[in-house]
Amino acid sequence: MKRDEIILGGFGGQGIILAGYIMGKGASLFDKKHATHIQDYGPEARGGACRTEVVISDSRISYPYIDNPSILAVMSQEAYTKYSPRMRQDTVLLIDENLVKPKRRKHNRLFAIPATRIAQELGRTAVANVVMLGFITAVTKVVSVEAMKQAVLESVPKGTEELNMKAFDRGYSYGLEKLKTAEGEGK
């Protein structure tokens, strides 16, 4: 039984929960796997710590929580500090390098992307989460690129599809490049 466990962390307003939702949707509706998306939020509408968990499995998911993620993607220093201790040896760590400075020198499998800066280049900081999704897709292949793209298209507000596709593609090709150059920067 294959079970992928993904934690996405950041702060409220970055679209972290939406990113988790899109990932779960891609895996379940288009890759036809089982997927459970859990959101966790506090009273703040903006700025508070925010986390979402996605479990993707070949079989039915009874326990929906994650102790030690196989994939950790963080878009805030606070999220990094909070969740990186829960990493396993083989956890793939993905960070927005504009927002997160890893404390430990050596992460076995660290992949960094300037997601927020790329989003700014595209004209909308709001799509940083989709840049990150493209990056995660390229690096981890946890959801197929076709499924993820379709999920993005069907989840973002009408009229923003093109922008979001651009964002996804930028993140995705950045990820492919990273894979080519190294099996992870930590090595």
Binding site: G24, K25, S28, H34, T36, I38, Q39, P64
Partner: peptide, 9 residues
């Protein structure tokens, strides 16, 4: 709350 906020197919 967990079931209410949990996303699934």
């Amino acid at each position: 709350e967990i079931v209410g906020h949990m996303g699934e197919k």
